[in-house]
């Protein structure tokens, strides 16, 4: 078999990232296809080198084919391109229980744009907890430069209960400029209860500490894993470096 075909298969299998047994079976199957196609082109009168080139071209982009051969939803899916899907997903776009990426969607999402139950990122939309430059948490606590949520804490905070440099809400606490509906003590019990997170500044401080204690290691780990994946792919597909 030609070196070019072997290199093509190496690339496909690097992206597919399957177990050795699965990889061997996939290689045998694709090899049979490519060799059959080469033989067909040769029978049509093409020189062997041209037949090999045309066969590879017809087979498709190795990244597209290889990524397609990954499990639909893996335990861990790390991709340098496209959308990673898995229990733990890391990639430019990531969908998973734990999702890390430029755009991350998951129960726990961390990314430039993150959407989930608990979200951290430049723009964070979290159902129960959002932490970011712009944080939106309709059912829970939003902490951020601009925070919108049931309980919002930030430079600019808007929520049922809001606290911040500039705060607007049904009930505001510990705020600089504020627009509020209820005066302290008059607020309904539910708002008093929600304000627990804001009443005690230490609670907010600890949430910051907890965030960084969680954010830094997970962010570091996801970057490390992504770098390892890039290295692994580059080993099989040096053209990526071009």
């Amino acid at each position: 078999m030609s070196l070019a075909l072997e290199q093509y298969l190496d690339r496909v299998l690097a992206y597919a990232n399957r177990s050795p047994d699965d990889a061997a079976a996939i290689r045998a199957e694709l090899k049979d296809h490519l060799e059959s196609r080469v033989a067909e082109f040769e029978a049509e009168g093409l020189a062997r080198e041209d037949a090999i080139f045309k066969s590879i071209e017809a087979h498709g982009n190795p990244r597209k084919v290889g990524y397609g051969l990954r499990p639909r939803f893996a335990w861990i899916d790390i991709r340098t391109h496209g959308t990673a899907r898995g229990f733990i997903a890391i990639g430019p776009k990531a969908i998973g229980v734990f999702a890390f990426g430029g755009t991350a969607v998951g129960v726990f999402a961390l990314g430039g744009l993150s959407i989930g139950a608990l979200s951290y990122g430049g723009f964070a939309l979290g159902a129960f907890l959002a932490y970011g430059g712009l944080a939106v948490a309709p059912l829970g606590l939003a902490l951020g430069g601009i925070a919108l949520g049931a309980v919002a804490v930030g430079g600019m905070a808007v929520g049922l209960v809001a606290s911040g440099g500039c705060a607007a809400g049904l009930f505001t606490l510990n705020s600089g400029a504020s627009a509020t509906w209820f005066a302290e003590g008059d607020a309904p019990v539910i708002l008093q209860w929600l304000s627990l997170a804001v009443r005690n500044p230490r609670y907010v401080q600890w949430s910051f500490v907890g965030f960084y204690a969680f954010f830094l290691p997970t962010f570091g780990m996801s970057q490390l894993l992504m770098r390892r994946e890039s290295k692994r792919i580059l080993g099989a597909d040096p053209t990526l470096a071009e």
């Binding site: 296809h33 196609r37 017809a58 087979h59 498709g60 982009n61 084919v65």
Partner: peptide
Amino acid sequence: YGYQIVNDLNARAQGLLAMGEGTVYPVLHR
């Protein structure tokens, strides 16, 4: 088998697999 399936598809609808014959395999495995 894969190669024959691809040829069948191409015979029935020319240009169907313009994005690559190899894209058939992920679907077969699924």
